[in-house]
Design a protein around this nucleic acid. Structure first.
Length: 273
DNA sequence: AACCAGGCGCATA
DNA sequence: TATGCGCATGGT
């Protein structure tokens, strides 16, 4: 990986296993938009525009923000080469990586991940994006024209269920509110989850109404750096029953979350599954 | 017009 | 412990 500063942007050259499009559009994050090849999104209080060029990945950001925010967000410190080498011992994952090279697990904010995946339950991706977008418009802070921060738990915990009506999230409203209250009060300390054993971290999340095993595992994988979390949704359930009746292969041990993301995307999107 | 969507809580046995 | 249904809403 080679970092070049060009005017007020950062160009990353020779970065293997990184597809901007796949990372931002494979169902792990719901707030990135593609405008003519330039992906745009807000994380914490910061806006990023990022695009994939022939020469490399172009981050429209300062070196300071690249180092302090985006390097970690895109998981650039992790050796995917080594991990994928192990995962590719499995023929199916090998096929998935060949067709969809460059999926990485993003390090999202724990609260945003939790809240997003509560909203995701019994739902489809376009509508999940709509609800989250309305959540940010209604309760986030404006960054610039049409762009908002993701509202924190402390900004939601004192609202009433009626206040959530504009989201059109249906029965999920009460779950979002309960999550906001338990997180804001510290009853569930989501910032400690990354340093806890995964089973214990999972139990903490299950205290929240509307959070079951699937949402908990998603939160741990996408928001708490637990790369071994393994969310099982309908698509992964299909893969498991079709290909892995006896469970995941040994080579995925420790990286179940990455295996999951490739299998999920492959099963959903591959024409030659 | 039914059925489904990156589930979960609850009732029932 | 295991199954099945209801839940709000919107897209196909």
């Amino acid at each position: 990986m080679e970092i070049k500063q060009i005017e007020n942007k950062i160009l990353i050259k020779n970065l293997a296993n990184f597809s901007v499009e796949l990372c931002l559009n494979c169902g792990q994050a719901f707030r990135w938009e593609n405008n003519n090849g330039i992906w745009q999104g807000v994380v914490k209080e910061k806006l990023l525009r990022i695009e994939e060029k022939e020469e490399g990945i172009l981050f429209h950001t300062s070196l300071n923000d690249f180092n302090n925010i985006w390097f970690n967000y895109f998981d650039l410190g992790r050796d995917y080469e080594e991990i994928l080498q192990k995962l590719k011992k499995d023929k199916n994952i090998l096929m998935a990586t060949e067709e969809f090279s460059g999926i990485r697990i993003l390090n999202q904010d724990p609260w945003e991940a939790l809240c997003s995946f509560i909203i995701s339950q019994n739902n489809n991706i376009p509508r999940i994006k709509g609800i989250i977008s309305r959540l940010c418009e209604n309760f986030g802070k404006p960054i610039e024209e049409g762009l908002y921060t993701f509202p924190g738990a402390e900004e939601l915990c004192n609202l009433s269920l009626d206040d959530f009506a504009p989201l059109r999230a249906g029965f999920r409203n009460k779950y979002i509110l309960d999550a906001a209250q338990k997180v804001a009060s510290g009853e569930v300390d989501i910032y400690k989850l990354k340093d806890m054993p995964i089973e214990q971290a999972c139990e903490e999340l299950l205290k929240i109404k509307g959070v079951g095993a699937k949402v908990a595992q998603c939160t741990l994988l996408y928001g708490c750096e637990h790369i071994d979390a393994f969310p099982v949704d309908v698509w992964v359930k299909r893969v498991m029953s079709e290909l892995y009746e006896n469970g995941l292969p040994e080579c995925t041990k420790g990286f179940e979350g990455i295996a999951q993301q490739y299998l999920f995307h492959w099963r959903r999107n591959s024409k030659n599954f």
